[in-house]
Amino acid sequence: MDKKERFTAVAKFLGKYASHQMGCGVHTSRVVRNTKRLSESFDIDVAVSLFQRTLTISVYDHEANRVHSELVEIQHQPILFIHNASLSALSWEALDNHLTLDEVKKKYDEALAAPLLHPLFILILASLANLSFCKLFGGDIVAMIIVFVATASGFYLKQCMTRWHCNNHLTFIASAFTASFIAASSFFLDTTSEIAMATSVLFLIPGVPLVNGVIDIIEGYTLIGVTRLINCALMILCIAVGLGGTLMIFQNSLF
C-alpha cells in the first residue's frame, strides 16, 4: 500500500469510527478526542469537523503538502453506551500497543459485534425503573403497579415501532399516548392517580441527548449542543402531544 492509499484508508476508517460514535450517543468532545488519539497511533495528523448529520475527516500529509478529506454521513441509531466504552478503549489500545490499521479494523468489528442486552430484559428493567420513579414521587402500591403495566405496554410499542422503522416522532407520540392511556385507569381507582400519570411517560424522556447537549455547549461545541437540545425539545413535545391526547379524553376525571 503506497502512502496515498494508506492515507485514504485511514481517513475512511476514521470517518466510519467517528460517525458511529456520533450516531450512538457519545458527546462530541469524546468523539473528537478518540478519533485524534486513534490517528496519533497511526502517526497521522487529523482534523475533525462535525455537524448533526455529517462529519468531515481531514488527514494531513505534511511531506507532500496535501490534505485528504472524507465526508461521512452520520447514521443515527439507538443509544449504545457499550460502544462508547469499547471504542474509547480501542483508541487507547491502538495508541499504547501500536496496532496496525488492519488490527484496529478487526478489533472495531469485534467491538460492534458484541452482544447487546436482550430487548425483553430492557423492557422489564425500564418498567421497574418507572415503578421506582412512581414510588420516589410518593405514589402508592396501586399506582406503582399501574405504572409498571403502562410502561411495559408503551415501551413494547416503542420497541416494535423502532423495529418497523416508523418515524421517530410518531413513535414517541404513540408510546406516550399508550402508556398514559393505560395509566389513566388510575382515575377510576382510589390511588395517587396524578403521580401515576406523571410517571407513566418518563421512560421516554431523552435523558442522554439532553445531558450530551448540555455537555457539548459547556465544552464549546455549541452548534451541535444546541441541535441536540432542539431535537430533545421536539421529542418532549411529542411526549406532550401523546400525554395531552389522554388528558383530553379523561379531562372530566381530572377535576
Binding site: I79, I122, L125, L128, A129, F133, L136
Partner: peptide, 16 residues
C-alpha cells in the same frame, strides 16, 4: 428505588 430507576434507565442506553 433510585438505584433501580438508574439501572432501568441505564438499560435503555445499552451500557456494558
Amino acid at each position: 428505588f433510585a438505584a433501580i430507576a438508574g439501572c432501568g434507565f441505564g438499560a435503555i442506553s445499552n451500557p456494558p
